[in-house]
Simulated assay, not measured.
Amino acid sequence: MPITLSKTKLMAYISCPEKFRLRYGLRLKPLKDDPALLEGRAIHHLVESGLMYAYAIEDVLPVASMRFWESTPFESCGYDSIKEYKHAQALCLAQSQKFLELIGPMQVMAVEKEYLAILTDPFTGEVFDDITIRGFLDVLFQGESGPAVIDIKTVGRTPSMPIAHISLELALYGYLLTYPDYWDAKPIEVAFLNLIRTKEPKITWDKAVVDIEAFEALVTTCRQVAEAIRLGHFWKNPGMHCGWCSFRGLCHGNNLLAIQTFGHHVIEFYQATKDVMAYQHLHNSMNPQDQAA
């Protein structure tokens, strides 16, 4: 069974295989967008737009903001009132302008650049043609030694420790950027750009370098995850991350929350697919949200 793995899919499976099953197997999606996640996406989009078109930033940002919110109307969002919805738009635009001032000028080559690669061992050259790696690089810019990668994170507080040097997702981006010339490639500069939404917006940089050893570890992880998915190995991994997971109502047996999040048909559908063997033989059209569409 061919499998395509992205950064989001990898991180979802590693954090909680059951979350992966619900999101990518059953394709369950909340009826409405969570305001915090929505605003994070809005700022992400506006900052990328501002970095890419810095020469016309005063014109670009308002247009980018308008188009983003037009694609996410009030009815699809979890805001309690139109007033809150409009306040979020103004706040995201103002914070994005501040973040861009703090970032300053940058030689941006591309934003949301898509890469695809057939999984290949960087040391042996062995090709695993049933596994495809896909990624969208938030920002590709000209670093000191060549093309470099920035992954944008929108957070509510300053991260407690640097993690770029051990990040699987940054290794994935470096892997895609150097594919397939791993032996000849220079180490890739990577960084998390943390946009911190405190009362006074601020940013922090978390920088590292990834090389062929990081790519080898990534290939091993991708192979293990792909094999586990093929075998139907999905289990719950409870922890602090459950607090902001959309699926906590289903996993924790809170039927009221699950219905509020996904709709009335979700409980029966979820119960019918808890058995792994039954899940593996279900047709995608059984998803009640697909039927409704």
Rank of each mutant, 00 (worst) to 15 (best):
A228V: 01
F234Y: 13
T261P: 00
C242R: 04
T204M: 09
D206C: 10
L250V: 04
I229S: 01
G243Y: 11
N237V: 07
W244R: 15
V210N: 01
F234L: 07
C242N: 00
T220K: 14
A258M: 00
V210Q: 07
P201L: 03
R248E: 07
E216H: 15
G253S: 06
I267P: 00
A228T: 02
Q224Y: 11
I203R: 04
I203S: 03
H241G: 02
F262G: 00
K207V: 08
H264D: 12
A226D: 01
V266K: 02
W244I: 14
T221S: 12
S246M: 11
V219C: 14
N237Q: 11
W205K: 06
A214P: 03
T261L: 07
T198F: 05
A208M: 09
L250C: 03
G249F: 01
G232Y: 01
G253E: 02
L231N: 12
G232P: 03
W235L: 12
A226P: 05
F262E: 04
Q260H: 12
E268P: 03
R230D: 05
G249N: 03
H233K: 14
V210C: 06
D211I: 09
H264P: 09
R230K: 13
T198D: 07
A214M: 09
E200L: 13
N255H: 11
L257S: 08
T221A: 12
L250S: 03
A214I: 01
V209C: 11
R223W: 08
L256Q: 14
E227I: 10
E213F: 14
I259E: 03
V209Q: 15
E268L: 09
Q260V: 06
G253C: 08
N255V: 07
H233N: 09
F234V: 01
G232E: 02
D211G: 13
V219F: 05
R223H: 07
H264S: 13
H265P: 07
T261I: 05
I203Y: 04
I203V: 08
W244D: 11
I212E: 05
I212S: 08
R223N: 09
T261E: 09
V209I: 15
V209P: 03
I259W: 01
T204R: 12
W235G: 05
K207N: 07
T220A: 11
V219G: 03
K202T: 14
N254D: 15
V219M: 06
K199W: 05
R230G: 03
I267C: 00
A217G: 08
T198M: 08
C245H: 00
V225M: 09
L256A: 13
T261Y: 02
V225K: 08
H265L: 10
Q224E: 13
T221L: 13
C242D: 02
G239K: 02
P238L: 05
G253P: 04
T220L: 13
T261D: 00
V209A: 12
E213I: 13
S246I: 11
H265I: 06
T220R: 14
H252D: 08
T221E: 12
E200F: 08
H233Q: 10
I229P: 04
V209L: 14
E213C: 11
H252K: 11
P201V: 02
V210A: 02
